[in-house]
Design a protein around this nucleic acid. Structure first.
Length: 558
RNA sequence: GCCCCCGUAGCUCAGGUGGAUAGAGCACCAGAUUCCUAAUCUGGGUGCCGCAUGUUCGAGUCAUGCCGGGGGCACCA
């Protein structure tokens, strides 16, 4: 709708230039927006204000000229008027709004599919938890965010690949193995030393049990035993991570192993290339990469004095490999504690001529956990944390996904376990789901009464005339813009806000009927009932589509 | 010291590329159910939008500085 108005306005300005009623000048930036105040119409533009300086005329004068020259042959507009310092407020004709409703109920689940981009290849990497313990709340937030973003991007026509990068080599994986072996040994020998920085969680003990039942650890040398514990431990944990994510309705296309990255020789190749470009040098016995020249504040070590590569080395290699796979854009979702990592990563890419905006890094701020009015410090190593699994047991997948997306990812999220547990009926997700269930119920009643939506309801829609009905249609019409915006800003939380607003408008509309029987959806007048059912069907469609993008179920009954 | 995020109603937070009178949920108070699901709805808000300066027709929004809270600044992962 906004696009049509934009088109009409630009045509009008051209016309004004041609006729000489406005001086020819480059078209300035202007906006068409939905005003906060309903008295200001359905849409408003600041175009006259933006034109004022180049025209040397008052904005109100320009606004009048524009309005006089609008050639609205299709009858898009019902009214246009000058307002305030020089805005133009537009009222769209009812017929246009009915057209949108008709479009929604015709296209159903495909309403607004593929509007933004077609086929641009995007790689989204998220969660990427180390297989050294179960997923916790922070991973849940990243999973909900990344998955919803992927669903929206894909719905809007991007060719999306979801990837989980497995940090399955390096120091911390070995420490996992040592921790497991320790728990095994301690059963008979409580004095057996626990590794420094070892993992304390209860899951380590159960891993020790599982592994020792399968393999006789006593028969192995300590080195062999650690090796076995490491390998089996990460295997089991990775499988648990997969299961947790599956339960959370998050699916990945690719599980990318760091181990394979180095064993396949990719890391070495990358180093060769870097060396060839003169980007590497030795100092103090370590190998450094020159990132300082590319926007980082200092050079970075990629191979330590002890001969081990840093994570940065494989991360560079990994990201270059992503680029080689031909993605137009890469999105990484990282914990906020990695923010210092962004400049050096981008610098490394830039040194290969990969532009800065190829990679978007979304940082998720901390999830703070509250229980019994106290903050619980989460630490995997101290074994003190609430797992995603526990959270899902408490509040369910729907509520968890929704709550994770009620705040912008770069704001901290206070997650009060007690509150969300209690929240049963106060939880906002139920509010939206209830609107859906309620509409389903109305359709069951209508079915009992022998009323259904006709094949072509278009002719009946002009029976919709209540303010509340028109508000609903206009809100539904915003859905495409919301999705487009999420693609642009990478902020899926806008969807939860939008759905809450839509559900609210519907509940309000429904309740009109409790006071005034003529305003009920099912009335003695068949045509009117059919028109209103079409409206309800539109709302149901948009809510269903929205919830599907959030990975949340749309129940028929509650 | 440097970097990132945050600061909006009692609380938790939304506030498209700057627009007209800044919003929602929770909490609190008062109401609505012979009627399509009350998990709902209606009514009730005197907010230095952290402070200051700047940019301009116009700033919660942009720029700079300061104050306050959180996080990060390793040859850790």
């Amino acid at each position: 709708m906004k696009a049509r108005l934009d088109f009409l306005l630009r045509a009008t300005i051209d016309e004004c230039f041609k006729k000489g009623v406005l001086k020819k000048a480059p078209l300035p930036d202007f906006v068409i927006e939905i005003p906060n105040n309903p008295a200001h119409g359905h849409f408003a533009t600041n175009l006259p204000l933006a034109l004022a300086s180049s025209q040397h005329r008052s904005p109100r004068e320009i606004a009048t000229i524009i309005i006089d020259h609008i050639k609205d042959e299709r009858g898009l507009l019902e009214n246009s008027e000058v307002a305030g310092p020089g805005f133009i407020n537009f009222l769209i004709s009812a017929k246009e709004w009915y057209g949108i409703l008709s479009d929604i109920v015709t296209r159903k689940g495909d309403y607004d599919r593929n509007r933004v981009r077609s086929g641009e290849r995007v790689l989204v990497e998220f969660v990427s938890a180390n297989p050294t313990g179960p997923l916790h709340l922070g991973h849940g937030r990243g999973a909900a965010l990344g998955d919803t973003l992927c669903r929206v991007l894909s719905f809007c026509g991007y060719d999306v690949v979801r990837e989980f990068y497995i940090n399955d080599s390096g120091q911390q994986i070995t420490i996992l193995g040592e921790s497991i072996l320790n728990r095994f040994k301690q059963v008979n020998n409580p004095e057996y030393p626990f590794p420094e920085n070892g993992y304390h969680g209860d899951y380590v003990l159960s891993l020790a049990k599982t592994i020792s039942e399968e393999i006789d650890l006593e028969k192995l040398t300590e080195e062999e035993a650690i090796h076995v514990c490491t390998r089996k431990g990460k295997e089991i944990l990775l499988e648990e991570i997969r299961q947790d994510l599956k339960r959370f309705r998050v699916a990945f296309d690719i599980w990318y192993s760091e181990n394979e990255l180095s064993s396949s020789g990719l890391l070495e190749n990358t180093l060769e290339v870097l060396r060839g470009n003169g980007l590497l040098y030795e100092q103090d016995g370590a190998l450094w990469i020159r990132t300082a020249g590319f926007g980082d504040d200092k050079d970075r070590v990629i191979r330590k004095r002890d001969g081990q590569f840093t994570y940065f080395a494989s991360d560079i290699s990994y990201h270059l490999e992503k680029h080689n796979r031909g993605f137009a854009k890469a999105i990484d979702i990282w914990g906020a504690d990695h923010h210092g990592y962004i400049p050096r990563m981008k610098a490394a890419l830039l040194s290969h001529g990969i532009p800065e905006d190829w990679l978007s890094v979304m940082l998720i701020q901390l999830v703070k956990l509250w229980k019994g009015g106290q903050e619980i410090k989460m630490s995997k190593r101290a074994g003190n944390f609430v797992t995603l699994q526990e959270l899902l047991d408490e509040v369910g997948v729907d509520a968890a996904r929704f709550v994770f997306l009620t705040k912008n990812h770069d704001s901290q999220l206070d997650f009060d376990i007690d509150l969300v547990k209690k929240q049963d009926s106060d939880n906002p997700v139920y509010y939206v789901q209830y609107a859906h269930a309620r509409i389903c119920s109305i359709f069951r009643k209508a079915g009992d009464a022998g009323i259904s939506i006709p094949e072509k309801p278009d002719g009946l829609l002009n029976l919709l005339s209540l303010d509340e009905e028109m508000v609903l249609i206009r809100t539904m019409a915003e859905f495409p813009a919301i999705l487009a915006e999420i693609c642009k800003t990478l902020e899926p939380h806008r969807l939860t806000y939008y759905l809450t607003a839509l559900a609210s408008s519907f509940h309000r509309y429904f309740n009109l009927g409790t006071k005034i029987p003529e305003h009920r959806i099912i009335t003695p007048e068949k045509g009117l009932s059919q028109a209103r059912l079409t409206l309800a069907e539109g709302v149901r469609t948009v809510i269903t589509n929205g919830l599907r993008l959030l990975g949340i179920s749309a129940p028929q009954r509650m």
